[in-house]
Design a protein around this nucleic acid. Sequence first.
DNA 1: AACGTCCACAACCGCAAACAG
DNA 2: CCTGTTTGCGGTTGTGGACGT
Length: 277
Amino acid sequence: MGRSPCCSKEGVNRGAWSAEEDEILSNYIKTNGEGKWRDLPRRAGLRRCGKSCRLRWLNYLRPDIKRGNISSEEEDLIIRLHKLLGNRWSLIAGRLPGRTDNEIKNYWNTCLGKRMKGQSSSKTGRKGVIYGSEEKKHSTETLHEPHKVIQTNATRCNKVLLPPQQGEPIKEKDTDVGLLEIPSVLASQDGQYLGFLMDFDFGGLLVSDVLDSSYMLPLGDEIHEKSHANGGDCDGNSFSSSFDHHLALNEAVLGDWSESNLVQNGVAPEIERLGLP
DNA sequence: AACGTCCACAACCGCAAACAG
DNA sequence: CCTGTTTGCGGTTGTGGACGT
């Protein structure tokens, strides 16, 4: 019934890995590199399924793995990233060198999640964020987003959609250049203004790395992206400063920000310039 | 010492995205 | 394009150790 398993269970070891299996896997990957997980067990002589090998390597055997002792700085980062990203463990882990998504997830489920829940009963968590009983739900449901990110076909996306303010239609006639002619302005096919598309290049840290892709507005048939005609990344909004700065700006983009935080991180002038609320 | 309960973490599972042919 | 395969992700479960009774 249901799906067939990813691999035949017969003759395949399950459960905890032995030291011998670890050594075989490590040696094989050091010699042959990662990838081709499906064939790896057979080639390496392991009685494990490929998925299990991959997981064991990524979460445990990789030489650059840090284990245990999550520092307060890391913890703080996890909390902030979780606030922004929800349960996107791999993205969160990607910002914590040496940490794996599994470790972050376990840490959250066992320590931070409970702590956050505990804080919710005293109304607010860190920085005044409310962590309610719905915390476990995906954050698309908990964050209402005045600004969205456009997801292009590329996995990495660095465009933030700033929709028109409610009750504040933009009048094309006010400008010499028609609004819809401005690069990075989004329009429907009937020419209706849908929002302003901004590029955020954080010097290798793209806003899309931080923002949940599910906040992103899918590029459906009704929308075409005028900025594409202008080439890829825009260089006019390039910020190259600290990670805190990036986070503060992202929080602002999501409409969930504290003024003092933005001032502290030097983001306030940019927020003003971008005309964010 | 024996048993039960709780907790942290490793591992598994199913789904979906990405990729290859 | 279409289809099959591989990889990556997030939720869930299983297990072993710590702790309490």
